[in-house]
Design a protein around this nucleic acid. Structure first.
Lengths: 367, 367
DNA sequence: GTGAAAGCGCTAACAA
DNA sequence: TTGTTAGCGCTTTCAC
């Protein structure tokens, strides 16, 4: 019962029998702790027979290595940070879920934090990542907070951004092709006969919001419709912002016949303001969102929107980070990560007021 | 430039100047690492003058202790686990946000994971918590997965559950008073004149769902309305479940005049099915949800629902865990954590079909 | 009140 | 191929 350990000539005050560490495994498998370590880390030089014996002991005792000790000595925490702007916008939980699944699949733990667009929170958040020694950080705030992120970049922590980010050896950027989906949206509207199209943009600070607006303006011009400045309003990417912007539009003298929104939350706000005003979508106004969050399927009416795959985004982010961390230095060339966007037509878009009847006359009513 | 360290007679191969650890601080402050450690941990016996000097060096170098090393030696990770069922149900992100804020405020990091009601995921998730050596776990799945959680309980990891949980020294349970809010809902409906009230319940496996149903049945009886079994359907706590259940109700010969739902997602599904069927809420059917997620304010029509504070829930959970971890052994008595629920009346509830006109005649139309 | 030194559980360099 | 051992950066006795 007493200390029968093999090479325990010195130290280790108490040899409590319940202690479950690499030493216990080594003792029971009759090997050194180094061999156990090698076995666990699947170092190919271990004799298969011995490895088998070690694994058996490990499984029998349901042993797993202490991650803290491991991290301390190896310098790798196997934790990936994920910074999002607002966890309460349904887009993000869907993204987080994907990120978690993929990261865990590769053996990483994740550290999620939301900034709520608050620089103070952002800076706390970076500090937390630093303290926990994350192996890499995905900055999915869709904005660029360069000064703050400096701390991470300086310490050579692999970083991945969306749309745009500082240049650097360990920095990747996921390029979202907003143009494709937004152009489809504008063309869809134009094809229905809309010429008076408003855009509810997101916060100025968000690069992605700017990109979406740019894509809109450009697509409008492509369709030969000059975008009207009074019809480009701030939607803030929130329910409330969408409602407020729509009210502003309703109060104006000249009403657009369609509205594109920089995200789905804004569009849902618009839907609500229309409902409040006693107006109908799409009869009185066509509405297009952006993101295609799950709930967009059941808004009233179901929202026509631009789909951006959170799963693709999550996978690309994890892969980009892994490429840096696990350093396949054989291929130091930057990978290109492109994310597609596509229009999903539902029922919030239709012909502009007035044209419907005429068009109906032309084509016989469907059964 | 060479090794001038104070007591570095032996070891420490490379003394790279950029190394930023407790030793650096000790050297620059002219004290031992023990004193630095004590200072950081605010041990009162440290001479204030020396402490001040140490803090100055710490701040100047922007030093912070290595959490891994700290955790390794102290046995405390300062990580709190949070297990939720589905991060994509908006209720949970709101809860997570609160949990994160409160935990971080007290110096903890959080490890969130969602099980999606999948036992396999649940078990992975528990393993991850174990591997990262969390100091405590909040199991906010609103269901009870006793067998799986055994692993955590056995290792004496502080646990907190909602509604119901195994008994044990380190286990707390947050009691949600579903009855209060649900009774208010039923009474609200009864007061409007409803007698035909259906209930769309959540998954059987979820204890909270069962409690909500029980509260409903009991409240119905209190109001003298015997609940009708055919009107108690499975809503699954999802959009899709709500839609399907409502369709079932619509297909039945006898339609209720009101529906209470076990959560808001279900209610949103109901709203959508009604819209699809060309029926109106609340004119043709009154609908009440549960949770009061943010989006319930802008559904069409805005949802009457029962509010359950995620913030209270989050705060109670963190406090319960902290009480165990930080062990104020002076008060080993179990704290009682009660969470209130309250009805929030919006516009998805109204008089049952037919009664409205009569009632209107009685009271003059409001201006 | 402060410092020296022993480890926390593991990985990796070096030896055998 | 396998074992021995020196730390990773910190907390915590135990002397002084």
């Amino acid at each position: 019962m007493a200390d029968l350990g093999q090479g325990t000539k010195k130290k280790r005050k108490t040899a409590s029998p319940e202690r479950m560490d690499i030493r216990t495994i080594a003792r029971l498998a009759n090997v050194s702790i180094a061999t156990v370590s090698r076995t666990i880390n699947r170092i190919p030089t271990v004799n298969p027979k011995i490895a088998k014996r070690v694994w058996e002991v490990i499984e029998e005792l349901d042993y797993f290595p202490n991650t803290q000790a491991r991290a301390l000595v190896s310098g790798r925490s196997w934790i990936l940070g994920l910074i999002v702007s607002e966890i309460t916008n349904p887009f993000f939980p869907e993204l987080i879920q994907g990120f978690e699944d993929i990261a865990v699949e590769h053996g990483y733990e994740i550290l999620v934090s939301s900034t709520n667009h608050d620089p103070k929170r952002m800076s706390h958040c970076i500090r937390r990542m630093l303290e926990r020694k994350v192996d890499g950080v995905a900055v999915m705030t869709f904005g660029i907070e360069a000064p703050l992120l400096e701390q991470l970049a300086q310490r050579k922590i692999p970083l991945v951004f969306v749309d745009v980010g500082p240049d650097g050896p360990n920095i990747s950027v996921l390029k979202v092709d907003y143009r494709h989906g937004i152009r489809q949206g504008v063309q869809h509207l134009a094809a229905l006969g809309h010429r008076k199209i408003a855009f509810l943009r997101g916060p100025l600070a968000l690069h992605s919001a700017q990109s979406r607006l740019d894509a809109f303006s450009e697509s409008m011009r492509e369709c030969g419709i000059p975008p009207k400045p009074e019809w480009i309003l701030q939607g803030e990417h929130t329910l409330e912002g969408g409602m407020a912007a729509m009210q502003q539009l309703l109060a104006g003298k000249d009403m657009p016949t369609a509205v594109m929104c920089s995200n789905d939350m804004t569009a849902i706000g618009v839907l609500h303001s229309m409902y409040r005003a006693g107006l109908r979508v799409p009869d009185d106004l066509s509405v297009i969102g952006f993101d295609n969050i799950h709930i967009a399927e059941v808004t009233i009416p179901p929202l026509t929107t631009v789909q951006m795959s959170r799963f693709d985004l999550a996978r690309a982010a994890v892969n980009a980070l892994r490429a840096c961390v696990e350093g396949t230095e054989t291929s130091p060339q930057k990978h290109e990560y492109n994310i597609q966007t596509d229009l999903v037509v539902r029922e919030s878009t239709g012909f502009p007021r007035g044209t419907m009847k005429e068009l109906r006359k032309k084509s016989p009513t469907k059964k």
